[in-house]
Design a binder for these strands. Structure first.
Lengths: 291, 291
DNA sequence: TGGATACCATCTGGAAATCAGATAGATGAA
DNA sequence: TTCATCTATCTGATTTCCAGATGGTATCCA
């Protein structure tokens, strides 16, 4: 069996006769005739009923044509994939996002990415803090979305994205929730819930006020424990919102500083790495999203 | 691009080297080498890194191999389908069942059929009474499951299947449900709900007692209207059972005849039609189900 | 370091498949 | 019946395909 034979078979079905298919394929009629004959021999099946003026598909032939179309589609996909890869498309693209709390605004962009690069194999991971920079450094991730750090690393190219508002929150059942105004001294006396990566770093101490801290991997986990009244925490507003609307938690009104603390979100990429078309597209799309 | 090239590619990946693949394929090493080379030229992609002793798939090559396997699978399916069809497998098999109320016991058999003939294209229809015989006669259906008729047709081969128990039932809210014993005279005075096909026939009058009848296509519809207290009906016990357990309907105790009326289920096939392997298997399986 | 082994790329002549064109027979419409 | 159009088959020329030989390279081991 042969790909050409299948192509010819499909052409014959589309054109309605061997001769017409031959004309359309730029071949001689005899070529088509023999190709079909040999396909019939190979499959040990009569595909056409030639008793009339025009060849007519047998029932078995019709089934075979269906399957032949599937084969052709897969071949088509293969050549398209090859063309994409030859054009430099990444075989695998890994986006590292600091915390899955970003997903709500990120998911629509990923949907666009999927439409733009249907053959791309995408991986989205949520490493926190220094875990993310480590992945970028190692080349395990191609592009990173994270918060502006206190000490700026040299090996990365960085672009600003949107600002996220952080606020301090507690369960409505918490002692702090009863106060009309809260001081940092108040905060220091209660357990603080904080986000951590899997290693140690200075970065994760940012925002620490309390001496007693529980560390959790991810905003979602922190929020869950805040709801369970296990402490207070700084969290992005959009992560807090649903629980606030349900009346489970309350924002803390802090006296000496603004109740809401803005943090700059950034897009990172290893300086000496040239991204492929999907990486370029995604970078550009994320930057224009900011404006 | 070529099917052979893809085969060779897969063989190389499996064997780990061009030479080993050649040995396994019964070809010369040069054939494999040129085949891969030309595939690379066709796809405009480097599939292997040849810098080492053994060729190593590139990342792009790995993606291509995945897709090549899909192509091969579809081709495999095509040849298997061709072999099945060449072996006489029906391109399409239509089973006609008198009423979908039979499905509970029939579905497991169809599951077995699916396992036995995975490539078969099955159609299951539920024509009633004379609609079913018409479909068999016309060749629209290959095998029929229906009730033993009053006048026996000559053009069919017939095999007995199991017996089904029929009973008369009404809604628990019906006047007849209050009686401790019911006579045919009682039944004659209330609306009877009966099954009908889409045409007219004598057969559908069987079991008619009342002068006032509503006709419905199928037991399910009849049961639904019985539950709505729109009349009484003869129905198979296994159709009545769920509604009985829910207390929606009640069986009628009839004085002069047994409360339950058995009807013989039969398997039908056009006398001069030779079935394919799936038809033969299904017939045999249904008959051994009876014993 | 040098030899042995297994690997890949390339070349070449002969075998095999493929193709275009010609021919003959068949069908269906006018 | 005639004519246009179809399919099957044959044939010689071209092209492709293949096995084998050869040379260069990577890896292992003494």
């Amino acid at each position: 069996m042969n790909l050409q034979q299948l192509d010819i078979l499909l052409a014959v079905v589309a054109a309605g006769s061997f001769s017409a298919a031959a004309r359309k394929l730029g071949k001689v009629q005899s070529a088509v005739s023999t190709a079909i004959s040999e396909l019939e021999i190979d499959l040990n099946l009569q595909l056409f009923d030639r008793s009339g003026r025009y060849p007519k598909l047998t029932e078995a032939g019709a089934r075979i044509v269906q399957q032949a179309q599937l084969v052709r589609q897969q071949c088509q996909q293969l050549t398209e994939l090859a063309a994409d890869l030859a054009g430099g498309l990444e075989t695998r693209f890994c986006l590292a996002v600091d915390d899955e709390g970003q997903l709500p605004w990120l998911a629509p962009v990923l949907a666009e990415l999927s439409a733009q690069f249907p053959k791309l194999e995408l991986q989205v991971l949520f490493p926190l803090l220094e875990d993310l920079t480590l992945m970028l450094e190692r080349g395990d991730a191609d592009l990173g979305i994270c918060f502006q750090p206190q000490q700026l690393p040299e090996q990365f190219l960085r672009w600003p994205l949107q600002q996220l508002q952080f606020a301090a929150a507690v369960s409505t059942a918490h002692v702090l929730a009863t106060l009309a105004e809260v001081t940092t001294a108040d905060l220091q006396q209660h357990r603080q819930l904080m986000v951590t990566g899997r290693g140690e770093s200075l970065e994760k101490q940012r925002g620490r006020l309390s001496s007693q801290v529980w560390w959790l991997e991810g905003d979602i986990a922190v929020l869950a424990l805040v709801e369970q009244n296990l402490g207070w925490a700084w969290l992005p507003l959009h992560v807090l919102q649903p629980a606030m609307l349900q009346g489970k938690i309350k924002l803390l009104p802090i006296n000496s500083e603004p109740a809401q603390l803005p943090l700059q979100l950034e897009l990172w990429q290893l300086r000496d790495k040239t991204p492929g078309p999907a990486g370029l597209w995604l970078r550009q799309r994320l930057l224009q999203l900011k404006g």
